[in-house]
Amino acid sequence: MKKALSILPELLLLGLSTYWFLENWFGIQYFNSFAFAVMMVLIFQIIFQNKYIAFTLASLISLFSIYMVFAVISEFHDFPSVTSEALQLLSVGLLFCFLMFASSFLLVYKFLPKLF
């Protein structure tokens, strides 16, 4: 249990990237090589716990999650009126963005004492 809690940020990010990959694979029959690469890097990170990869991943994922917040808000404003679908897009999209940002923050917090 303690081991699972120690790799919780990586597991959350791995879950999100796996969902991203499988949604592309089964949803539109597209092999998303970027999502696959992110999954492989996260698996590598879970196995080896490299602090430099952790900081690189955390930086990229936090920037990507901030970008995605703006993308979700932009998509929300494309709806002509506030409907249940628009609210669902906003709530689920922002939840995913929050999970990514929180995981990247936890990843930095976890490896910060090891860097200095």
Rank of each mutant, 00 (worst) to 15 (best):
73 I>V: 15
99 L>C: 05
50 N>D: 13
19 Y>W: 14
104 S>T: 08
94 L>V: 03
69 V>L: 07
105 F>M: 10
15 G>P: 04
68 M>S: 14
35 A>Q: 05
8 L>K: 06
25 W>L: 15
39 M>A: 02
112 L>G: 06
39 M>S: 08
29 Q>G: 09
25 W>P: 00
91 S>V: 10
84 S>N: 14
89 L>T: 09
31 F>W: 13
8 L>P: 01
21 F>I: 06
102 A>F: 13
11 L>R: 02
64 F>R: 02
97 C>N: 03
66 I>K: 07
33 S>N: 09
77 H>N: 12
32 N>D: 15
112 L>W: 12
67 Y>V: 08
74 S>F: 06
6 S>P: 02
2 K>Y: 08
28 I>R: 14
24 N>Y: 04
45 Q>R: 09
32 N>I: 03
80 P>N: 14
106 L>K: 09
21 F>W: 10
28 I>A: 10
113 P>G: 13
92 V>N: 12
11 L>F: 10
73 I>E: 13
50 N>R: 03
14 L>D: 01
66 I>Q: 06
101 F>M: 11
36 F>C: 05
107 L>M: 10
21 F>T: 04
9 P>V: 09
83 T>E: 04
18 T>V: 08
58 A>I: 03
39 M>P: 04
87 L>H: 08
69 V>H: 03
67 Y>W: 14
43 I>A: 13
66 I>C: 08
111 F>K: 02
20 W>P: 01
15 G>V: 00
6 S>C: 11
65 S>R: 06
45 Q>V: 07
75 E>I: 11
21 F>L: 13
79 F>R: 05
65 S>M: 04
43 I>R: 01
95 L>A: 14
42 L>M: 12
48 F>Q: 08
81 S>D: 12
51 K>E: 01
104 S>Q: 00
64 F>P: 00
85 E>M: 10
40 M>K: 06
113 P>I: 11
16 L>T: 02
57 L>F: 02
69 V>E: 01
56 T>D: 08
29 Q>E: 15
35 A>T: 02
4 A>P: 01
17 S>W: 03
40 M>T: 11
20 W>S: 14
